[in-house]
Design a protein around this nucleic acid. Structure first.
Length: 851
RNA sequence: GCCCUCGUGGUGAAAUUGGUAGACACAAAGGACUUAAAAUCCUUGCCGCUUGCGGAGUGCCAGUUCGAGUCUGGCCGAGGGCACCA
């Protein structure tokens, strides 16, 4: 038997694809385009299983669409600016550029080994001046449009990475990369005015019907639009502060107000400058901080001021508190407290013995409706509220109240967003330089076009405090007009790099422009974007913003959303192994029975088997893709990574699963060779056999139908099951000696074609061993074979399945009933019984209701 | 606390619109072939009794329906997101 040698055959086909530029594409107006894009990798060193899964999914889709006749753009590049390069370089005295380029070379080789259908002529790397020079132009373009500004403000300062983090990059009060506790620091920073597009970004979500709802919802919550009312409260007790502004979404509960709460960062805090008690309270607040869990448990705390606020509706006087649950950066940093209808306010009121006056009662409640420990936030009607009484909550009450408040000049309608502007300044070397300079008066000047790009200096000393670029005095010098100026030394957040790379792929080799309109008009939007859900907010929201920012004040740019379809794949998990606090990798442990694990080099040491978790270097539960390619071949790895779970869910790596995928490849190859001998060799005599031909026609068309459906719907795990069905069917045919007809041969070719996207190397080889051309056509489905000549009909009595009946196709109800009555096994259900009702579902089921 | 998603055999999972629950695989047990192993193939997989059949069965409890994994309501559990966001 001729064993399948994946090593030579995979190499062979990868070479063929490379030499023929098989996946190189250009605009072809005669063809429909399909732009398939997977999130590009950060070149950290080697690819990991997450990449394998991500790129396999995209590759199967791309190859399928190509066979379907689409002009498929499937590019790859490198998100190559960023801190790991700088940190690694610092540590080992290297240049970030060298480190990055070496990693790219390694990972590119690895990706090629996976057999991806990439147009490598379009490869891009964001750290190359060829890429970032365009980004600098876009920065200036956005600056001209007023979408970029500089302001001094408090920033999230990561003391380990010595850089500024965006709000989104602060997770639980810690830097997303370093894990260090983030500090507050005042700095001059560059901002993108993403909030200008708050509404558009929100509304755009509704049109993205090929995005997972989960992601859309996360973005919606992140943008956090709320509708309410801005209110002015008169303040007594201090000459300087006569008024405090509040934002509320529940103006209709204003009659229930019993205190006013402001943030400790509110301007009125000035009154308490130097007050020891207040300082103590303030530092207490910052201890509970703005960070999650700890805070959610934290008690509601207040600091009573000497100020009095007047309820604008009835001049009722209420106390003013500083409160730890009010944040300065949302609304106006002040809220009115209505304990009856807000749980936080209620907890606060109970603690400080403040009045609790209900003003909303559920319908059908009496006027003595009382609030105890739980605030009432449900629907109902307004009461205890003078001229607001009787309004229906919430539909009528909020709008009507705002109307009334506006008429009385007390407040006005207001829409508030949670979204904040995107701070893009980073005090790092390894990023895109910001094309801005400052003259001696510290005025902001754009770097003129003829001085672009501002290239990063190379081979500089990175082991300095703060931003290495600050120390590059020569590099900083730039002459603008007649003025000696200094370059901005901040570089751009790397999320800027990835906010437009999908446009660059359309014109990857255009030296003059970042993209050409002609190219993006044809290729954009990305038809299918595939990546991890961890980018649901950051990257995906920034990319949407950047696209809208380019579109802003630009009639020629006609794209408003970059990604038409989005698919978020799950993670690759593996069990973890641990002794005490030391992690061990899967190849350091072994097990005889699959339950108890011991160290390989010391079998007396029992290993604790932990939960299956997402593969990570720190837990050492990783499997190296390259070792898998070498052991089992790329096709088998592709097959396995798709097989076990639906792609949107996490998948558990399993050695036995991997081995069985390998076995599938081997046994299919063997079977193929037998089929080739029987059907495709010159000496083989093909016959005609109506029974066999019918059977193979039905099977082939049905399986192609299933595979096509599953491809279109990302049910890739089911496709693998379909492949097993194919093997099982063909193998049964072999055993039953049915592989001998001309029709069989035709069908077998079709079957090979639909298997090609998943197993491109082996199937290409299979097709070439039977001297057939690998054409670019996905087989048509012959619908005649989708409906069978006969059907298995379920026979039910009173809704219970009592048997099956094989009937001719489209049998009419009366004939079917006759058939059922004839059968012995059904007689016991019909004897002495009256048929009350019959439900017949054509070709599927008949249900008798009997008495 | 709020919002979202998901609960199907020993395991990973299938089941386009309500219409044969458990496809396909992994693991296990038994068997066939073989001197043996590998490979391959077959059978079994909840409960009850004799082959055969009957019963229960998709987290739990109700409901709608001739018929519910699928629809509705309530509960329990797991995962994810957001957060004192007014």
């Amino acid at each position: 038997m001729n064993r399948y040698n994946f090593k030579s055959i995979e190499k062979k086909w990868q070479k063929v694809w490379e030499e023929n530029s098989s996946f190189k594409v250009d605009i072809d107006l005669k063809k429909k385009k399909f732009y398939c894009l997977e999130m590009f990798p950060y070149p950290s060193g080697k690819i990991h299983m997450g990449h394998v899964r991500n790129y396999t999914i995209g590759d199967v889709l791309s190859r399928y669409k190509k066979l379907k006749g689409f002009n498929v753009l499937h590019p790859m590049g490198w998100d190559s600016f960023g801190m790991p390069a700088e940190n690694a370089a610092k540590l080992n005295n290297l240049d970030p550029k060298d480190w990055t380029e070496k990693n790219i070379a390694t990972m590119k080789t690895q990706l090629k080994k996976l057999g991806l259908s990439i147009d490598w002529d379009r490869e891009i790397s964001t750290c190359s001046p060829e890429y970032y020079k365009h980004q600098q132009k876009f920065f200036l373009d956005l600056y001209d449009k007023g979408l970029v500004y500089r302001k001094e403000n408090y920033v999230n300062w990561d003391p380990v990475d010595k850089t500024v983090l965006a709000n989104e990059q602060v997770i639980n009060g810690k830097g997303w990369r370093s894990g260090a506790i983030v500090e507050r620091k005042k700095l001059n920073q560059w901002f993108f005015n993403i909030t200008k597009f708050s509404d558009e970004l929100l509304e755009g979500l509704e049109k993205l019907d090929e995005w997972p709802n989960k992601v859309k919802l996360m973005q919606k919550n992140w943008i956090g639009k709320s509708f309410g009312c801005e209110l002015n409260f008169k303040i007594e007790g201090n000459n300087k502060f006569k008024e405090i502004k509040c934002f509320t979404t529940r103006p209709d509960t204003l009659f229930g107000m019993s205190f006013l709460a402001v943030s400790v960062d509110h301007p009125i805090a000035e009154i308490y400058n130097g007050d020891k008690e207040f300082e103590k309270f303030k530092s207490n607040c910052s201890k509970t901080g703005t960070t999650e869990e700890s805070i959610s448990q934290a008690e509601k705390l207040g600091f009573k001021t000497n100020l009095i606020a007047l309820n604008p509706l009835n001049d009722e006087k209420v106390p003013v508190y500083f409160a730890n649950f009010v944040l300065m950066d949302y609304g106006f940093g002040a809220v009115f407290g209505c304990p009856a209808h807000d749980q936080r306010d209620l907890d606060f009121a109970n603690k400080y013995k403040l009045k609790i006056k209900p003003v909303v009662k559920p319908l059908n409640e009496k006027d003595d409706f009382k609030i105890d420990k739980i605030a009432y936030t449900g629907p109902g009607e307004i009461f205890n509220s003078d001229f607001l009484n009787g309004l229906v909550v919430p539909n009528e009450s909020i709008l009507k109240t705002i109307e009334i408040l506006e008429k009385k000049n007390i407040g006005k309608k207001k829409i508030n967003f949670r979204l904040k502007d995107w701070g893009v300044s980073r005090q790092r070397y390894w990023g895109c330089p910001i094309p801005i300079a400052y003259n001696s008066k510290n005025e902001i000047l754009k770097v003129p076009q003829d001085k672009l790009p501002i290239k990063l200096p190379e081979k500089i000393n990175l082991n300095v405090n703060g931003n290495p670029l600050d120390h590059q005095d020569e590099w900083k010098k730039i002459k603008i007009g007649n003025e000696e100026c200094k370059l901005e030394t901040d570089t751009l957040d790397t999320f800027v790099d990835s906010s437009w790379y999908f446009l660059r792929f359309c014109s990857a080799n255009n030296k003059e422009e970042g993209f050409s309109l002609k190219d993006i008009e044809y290729w954009m939007p990305v038809d299918q974007y595939i990546g991890g859900v961890e980018h649901a907010i950051l990257h995906l929201l920034y990319s949407r913003f950047f696209t809208k920012a380019l579109d802003f004040k630009n009639d020629k740019f006609k794209i408003s959303e970059p990604f038409k379809g989005l698919f978020t794949q799950g993670m690759v998990c593996h069990q973890t192994y641990k002794i005490d606090n030391t992690w061990y990798s899967p190849d350091e442990v072994s097990s005889e029975n699959g339950k108890d694990f011991y160290l390989k080099n010391d079998s007396s040491k029992k290993v604790m088997v932990g939960a299956s978790e997402s593969m990570s270097k720190s837990k050492k539960n990783t499997i190296d893709p390259e070792i898998m390619f070498e052991t089992y071949g790329a096709d088998a790895v592709r097959f396995f990574i798709l097989s076990d779970s639906p792609p949107e869910k996490d998948v558990q790596w399993s050695d036995t699963g991997m081995q069985s995928s390998y076995k599938f490849v081997q046994k299919f190859w063997d079977l193929h060779n037998e089929i080739r001998d029987k059907l495709f060799l010159e000496k083989s005599k093909l016959t005609k056999d109506n029974g066999i031909d019918e059977e193979i026609n039905i099977f082939t068309n049905q399986i192609i139908q299933k595979i096509t459906f599953n491809l279109e719907n990302f049910h890739y795990n089911v496709i693998i099951a379909n492949f097993h069905e194919i093997y099982n069917f063909l193998n049964t045919c072999k055993i039953e000696k049915k592989i001998k007809t001309l029709i069989f041969k035709e069908n077998y070719l079709k079957i090979l074609k639909v298997m090609q996207p998943v197993l491109p190397h082996m199937i290409s080889e299979c097709i070439s061993t039977i001297n057939e051309k690998i054409d670019t056509v996905w087989p048509e489905i012959d619908k005649r074979y989708l409906s069978k000549k006969s059907n298995t009909i379920v026979v039910q009595f009173n809704g219970k399945k009592r048997g099956l009946l094989e009937c001719e196709n489209d049998i009419n109800e009366d004939n079917l009933i006759e058939l059922v009555k004839k059968r012995d096994e059904f007689k016991k259900y019909l004897n002495d019984k009256e048929i009350v009702r019959k439900i017949y579902v054509k070709n599927k089921l008949i249900n008798f209701i009997v008495k």
